[in-house]
Amino acid sequence: MKVSTRGDYASRALLSLALRRGPEKPTSVAELSRRTGLPQPYLEQILLTLKGAGLVTSRRGACGGYVLSRDPAQITLAQIISAVDGPLTLGNFGAPHENGACEHEGQCVLRDVWAQVGNHMREHLRSYTLADMVARARGMTPDEQWVVGQ
């Protein structure tokens, strides 16, 4: 699997929002662009997609901008990537055939392996939350992350 530019930018934008989290203080697209180094027009498109997926909300007005729609511990990297890139897949190889009904030599065995790898990849990305990324960005160890989460 290759993480797209959109997936990377979306993850970076949401991590920035999580690092400076506060529902009372939305972050403007211009400020988010400055903090992350991401191009503002592209970032605006990504944030609209993330809003449609329910990961961020926007506030209008002079002090408007974007905030996370829920706690960073409830937003996974898998959700972010899926929101901007669609379902997480390793490739479009089709489902394994049932009862050994393979049409071509070795095809079913490989399809089964690709399906397992795809499942592993999705589960792995689901295991990382924005809260985990905030803790890493702040230099916390896994043990410290656990204590902070208590």
Score class of each variant (00 low, 15 high):
P87S: 08
D132M: 11
A62G: 06
A101R: 15
V84T: 14
L48W: 05
A78E: 12
R21P: 01
G100K: 08
R126W: 07
L55H: 11
R126L: 14
H124W: 12
Y128A: 14
Y42I: 09
W114E: 08
P39A: 09
G64Y: 05
C102N: 08
A78S: 09
V117K: 09
G65W: 04
M121V: 12
D85K: 02
T89D: 02
L68I: 04
D112M: 09
G61V: 12
L19N: 08
A83Q: 05
E98N: 04
A95K: 13
H104S: 12
L19R: 03
V113H: 11
L19W: 02
L110H: 14
L14T: 02
C63W: 01
A131N: 03
A53L: 01
R21Q: 03
L125A: 07
D112C: 13
A30Q: 11
L15P: 06
D85Y: 04
D112Q: 11
L50G: 01
H104K: 15
S58Y: 01
T76H: 02
A101L: 13
E44M: 08
T57V: 12
P23I: 00
S69T: 09
S16E: 08
T27H: 05
H97P: 15
A73T: 15
L125D: 10
V56E: 12
L15S: 10
L90Q: 14
I81D: 03
C102V: 10
G118I: 09
G118F: 02
W114V: 13
R20W: 06
Y66Q: 09
P39C: 01
G64F: 05
A30L: 10
A83N: 01
A18R: 00
C63I: 14
P87V: 08
R60N: 01
G106C: 13
D85I: 15
R59T: 11
F93E: 07
H120I: 12
R111Y: 13
L130G: 06
S28G: 14
A101I: 15
Y42C: 03
S33T: 03
Q116A: 09
